[in-house]
C-alpha cells in the first residue's frame, strides 16, 4: 500500500514536471520555480516567525480571556486577510467590468474584522477553545471506547 502510493505519487510528480518543461519555455519554468520557492521562503522565514512572535507576545503579556481572544482573532482573521491581498491590491480591476473587483474591500474587511473580534471574544469566554479534558468524550486511547 505505502509502496504503491510512493510509486503513484512519484509518477504524478514526474508528469507535472514534464508538463512544466514541455508546455512552458525555460524562462517560464524558471519563473514557476521562483514563485514556488519565493512562497516557501516568505512563509518559512517571514510569516511563521511573525506569527510565532505574536504568539510569544500573547503568552508573555496576555491574560485570559484576552489572550484566548487574541489567538482566536489571529487564526480566524489572519488567513482570510492574506488570501484577500490580491483583491486589496486590485490591479486586475477594469472599469468596464463592474462585477470584477467591484466591492468596497476596506469596508468589507472592517465589518469582517469586527465580527471576528466579537466572535473571538464570545468563543474565548466559553469553554469551546480551552476546556481541557473535562468531561469530554475522547478518541482512541479512551478506555470507555475500547
Amino acid at each position: 500500500m505505502r509502496a504503491a502510493l510512493v510509486v503513484v505519487g512519484t509518477a504524478a510528480i514526474g508528469y507535472g514536471g514534464w508538463l512544466l518543461l514541455s508546455t512552458q519555455s525555460l524562462a517560464q519554468g524558471g519563473a514557476v520555480l521562483v514563485w514556488a520557492g519565493g512562497a516557501v521562503v516568505a512563509h518559512d522565514l517571514l510569516l511563521v516567525p511573525v506569527v510565532l512572535a505574536l504568539g510569544w507576545l500573547v503568552r508573555r503579556y496576555g491574560r485570559d480571556p484576552v489572550a484566548r481572544t487574541a489567538v482566536a482573532v489571529l487564526v480566524l482573521l489572519g488567513p482570510v486577510t492574506l488570501a484577500a491581498i490580491p483583491v486589496f491590491v486590485g490591479l486586475g480591476a477594469d472599469p468596464a467590468m463592474p462585477t470584477l473587483l467591484g466591492r468596497d474591500y476596506g469596508l468589507g474587511w472592517g465589518v469582517l474584522a469586527i465580527g471576528i473580534v466579537g466572535a473571538g471574544a464570545a468563543l474565548a469566554a466559553s469553554r469551546i477553545l480551552s476546556g481541557g479534558a473535562r468531561g469530554r468524550s475522547t478518541r482512541g486511547t479512551d478506555p470507555r471506547r475500547r
Binding site: G9, Y15, Q28, L101
Partner: peptide, 26 residues
Amino acid sequence: TQWYPWQFSFRRAHYAVAWVAAGALL
C-alpha cells in the same frame, strides 16, 4: 482577480504544479 504578475501561463503552470502537489502529497 485577473492580475497576472508573472511571465508563465497561469493555466498551464497551475495545471502542471497541481500534478506535482498531488504526487508529493501521496
